[in-house]
């Protein structure tokens, strides 16, 4: 068989709807026979942070940042109509009623289907996310910088910035 077409995404946003869209495209891509890479950076890192566990971070400012910016797939909010959590709660309920997987379930599904989840080490450094292995979920198997992402993007038929 010929080499697989590649789909590579850079996910900057930690908004719930953007995370959902990214994972829908990821598992669709795998189903279409593509190799899928997801590179998480800036607020996108919140998607792949563990839901449980303490606050990590070196220094007071970084600890504070990570306290306010807890992350975890179950803590993501809608970019609109969050309404102090009520809107997000309602959206989650509607999703459940229509058998739509949650971000949490999508991450597990994507990992099982072979999607390559990558955490950006530069933003981890700036935002004081360390150690990455303790902060991120086990599904995140790779950590890299911009070069690894761009090299994947070079070879990809589809590149999306989310």
């Amino acid at each position: 068989m010929a080499e697989k077409e590649k789909l590579t995404m850079a996910i900057l946003s930690g908004d719930m709807e953007r995370a959902l869209a990214a994972f829908m495209l990821a598992i669709t891509g795998v189903s279409m026979g593509m190799e899928v890479n997801m590179f998480f950076t800036f607020w996108g890192l919140n998607i792949i942070k563990k839901n449980e566990g303490g606050i990590q971070g070196r220094g007071l400012m970084r600890k504070m940042l990570n306290l306010m910016n807890r992350g975890g797939s179950r803590r993501l909010k809608l970019s609109r109509f969050n309404m102090f959590g009520l809107g997000t709660w309602m959206m989650k309920k509607l999703m459940k009623d229509t058998n739509m997987p949650s971000v949490d379930e999508y991450i597990t599904m994507a990992h099982e289907m072979g999607v390559n989840l990558i955490g950006c080490t530069t933003t981890c450094g700036v935002m004081g996310i360390a150690p990455e292995e303790k902060t991120f979920r086990s599904e995140v198997e790779n950590l890299s910088g911009a070069t690894y992402f761009l090299n994947l993007a070079r070879q990809s038929k589809v590149v999306l910035f989310i």
């Binding site: 829908m24 669709t28 795998v30 189903s31 229509t98 058998n99």
Partner: peptide
């Protein structure tokens, strides 16, 4: 009862 992309994912499986 399943919405996109689940029917395609299940078909591929």
């Amino acid at each position: 009862g399943l919405y996109c992309p689940m029917p395609i994912v299940k078909t591929a499986e």
